[in-house]
Amino acid sequence: MISLIEYVIAALILIGVSFCFVGSLGLVKLPDFYMRVHVPTKATTLGIGSLLIASTIYFSILRGAPAVHEILIVVFLFMTAPISAHMLMKAGLHEGLPDVDGEVEKRRG
């Protein structure tokens, strides 16, 4: 039973880390600012969620009581990631950054 839980925790850690890695790789590789906004705010937040589930299970097993205060970080990050992405996208539109075709759309923020 304990070894099964260990496998589950290890799998969750690897899944979360791989999502974070995909997000960071997309931040470097994608050609356009409007594409680059999406990848960290979606993939990286999902990876953090998986890592926090893993650590919640780990500390619940370690202490023998449910550890729920890690959920706070998940709730906070899942609330704030869309807001910050929205603000950054508005700032990019305000700056008039070109998209991948070289078209510039200037808007007043």
């Binding site: 960071s24 931040l27 680059r36 960290p40 990286t44 950054l88 700032a91 990019g92 700056e95």
Partner: peptide
């Protein structure tokens, strides 16, 4: 500049 802010956020 928004690229750099996004990198800091990530």
């Amino acid at each position: 500049t928004p690229d750099r802010i996004l990198a800091l956020d990530t």
